[in-house]
Amino acid sequence: MSALGELSKLKTGGHQTPEQRAARRKEASRDNRAGYAFLAPWLVGLFAFTIGPMLASLYLSFTDYNLIQSPNFTGFDNLVRMLGDERLHTSLRVTFTYVLVGVPLQLIVALGIALLLNKGMRGLPFYRSVFYLPSMLGGSVAIALLWRQIFGTDGLINQMLRAFGVDATIGYVSHPDYALWALILLHVWTFGSPMVIFLAGLRQIPTMYYEAAALDGANKRNLFLRVTLPLLSPIIFFNLVLQIIGAFQSFTQAYIVSGGSGGPSDSTLFYTLYLYERGFTNFQMGYASAMAWLLLVIIAAFTAINFFAAKYWVFYDD
């Protein structure tokens, strides 16, 4: 059961008569003190480091704040400035491209490999490890540095092309048309973690569905389209939602690959990079807070759209 499943269960679960509810509440009250004792660290953290800061940043997003002088309330000034901020628009475009291309591409590869692997391969644990390893390493500075080298002017890619006699002189990470694609490729390279989730999902599809479909004369294509895909759709949905949320927040790879600048010519200026620049290089913390809230709204909107669209393509077995 996934986190998303839990959430949807919460909404629907628990129809009780008033008597039952009263009895339960009475029973529960005995444990109230103990329960909150166990929750105390989490509750302190929740208020001190999550809810408090969230409200504070909401307030700060309506102010000018530079960390030294106290925040100066400016109403919707930040929002108006954001509307006219060309670099913000660039960063949104870059981030959307990264998310909308990188995430589906990564999931398609993950699903494809998971389907190949699921076919009772000999050496499945070995393959699974090989494919999974990059997602453990993908977030590290070391790999980002390696990427910067591989796609550099004299990097591995160009060296290989030259070995085949191609006159390769483009530095991919220093070319505005290609730099973002190097990062998208890095994202696809870490397809291992959704792949493992797909594998777990494929395992749970009961074989009887395949037996029944095969008896009815379904061919392989139909088995895939009418049995595997529908039964796997909750897992695809789960991966899609989580990967989108994660991809919007990518920072390290773009920071390292672009040398901290989001360059060349802002072609890898991820939203988070620009936020960091505004907040912690220019110390425009009010503006950066407003940007953070816009990111929250965008991510929430994407998640809501996903949940809404799920009605039409996600199939729940139970």
């Binding site: 800061p53 940043s57 927040q249 912690f280 913390m285 950066a288 953070a292 991510i299």
Partner: peptide, 19 residues
């Protein structure tokens, strides 16, 4: 708690830094 799972950390960033 489940809600905080999906909360992007950036909305907490600046106040946390200030704290």
């Amino acid at each position: 708690m489940l809600g905080t799972l999906m909360l992007p950390g950036h909305v907490l960033l600046i106040p946390q830094y200030v704290i």
